[in-house]
């Protein structure tokens, strides 16, 4: 396989291999926390931290870990960083931590993170792993921001708590309810597929 440049490792996570919209990984947090942009940003931050730190850690220890126990090792590494993120949010952003509820601890079983460790960080060097982790978290961030913006604007008429549509617009309450998450994601995935089909 040809060595790809660091930039390419970063860029691929943004669109072509976008973890949420194209690979359909990590859907639980995507659907659950996108009822407002603020919650989404909190989740993006937590995933960014956990993914980057675990990728660094895994790419450092990859040669020391016997391959039979590698998954268990990755899970423990990820769980440790998730605990750090969870405690940090609870201490400094108690409101956000309450709003995100069990979804911060649930980052442990987020397929994006374990998937990247298994598919990338365990086979590549430190710097490439960091580039990959950054790209993937940005891709995750883009998807979450898009989805939460759509849902908050349509469902509540606000964006990050600021009122942007006034008067004539009646908020579609369904968009902030669970059903709206599925509908919005379905339409978004459809649009992404449409754009990709047209390009190729």
């Amino acid at each position: 396989m040809k060595e790809k440049s660091l930039g390419a490792e970063f860029i691929k996570g943004l669109w072509k291999e976008n973890p949420v919209l194209v690979m359909l990984l990590g859907l639980c947090p995507t659907l659950a926390v996108t009822n407002s942009v603020n919650n989404a940003i909190g989740m993006i931050g937590a995933v960014f931290f956990v993914l980057t730190c675990s990728s660094i850690m895994v790419s450092i220890v990859k040669d020391l870990v016997p391959s039979q126990v590698r998954i268990a090792t990755y899970i423990v590494i990820i769980a440790t960083f998730v605990t750090v993120a969870d405690r940090f949010l609870a201490a400094y952003f108690p409101e956000l931590s309450k709003a995100l509820g069990p979804y911060v601890p649930l980052i442990v079983v987020n397929c994006i993170i374990l998937g990247r460790q298994e598919a990338f960080a365990s086979r590549h060097g430190l710097v490439e792993s960091i580039a990959d982790a950054l790209g993937m978290s940005c891709g995750f961030g883009i998807a979450l921001l898009l989805l939460s913006s759509v849902r908050e604007i349509l469902g509540n008429g606000t964006w990050m708590g600021i009122k942007i549509v006034k008067g004539w617009f009646t908020p579609w309450q369904v968009m902030i309810l669970p059903a709206g998450a599925f509908l919005a994601l379905g339409v978004l995935v459809g649009i992404v597929h449409f754009l990709m089909d047209r390009k190729s």
Binding site: L24, F182, G186, V187, H193
Partner: peptide, 23 residues
């Protein structure tokens, strides 16, 4: 089904309608 919505797209929309009925 329109081709971009085949597979995951229509699955999510169906799930959305299911979620609505469960409400």
């Amino acid at each position: 089904i329109p081709s971009p919505f085949k597979g995951p797209g229509i699955t999510f929309i169906t799930a959305g309608i299911l979620a609505l009925t469960f409400m």
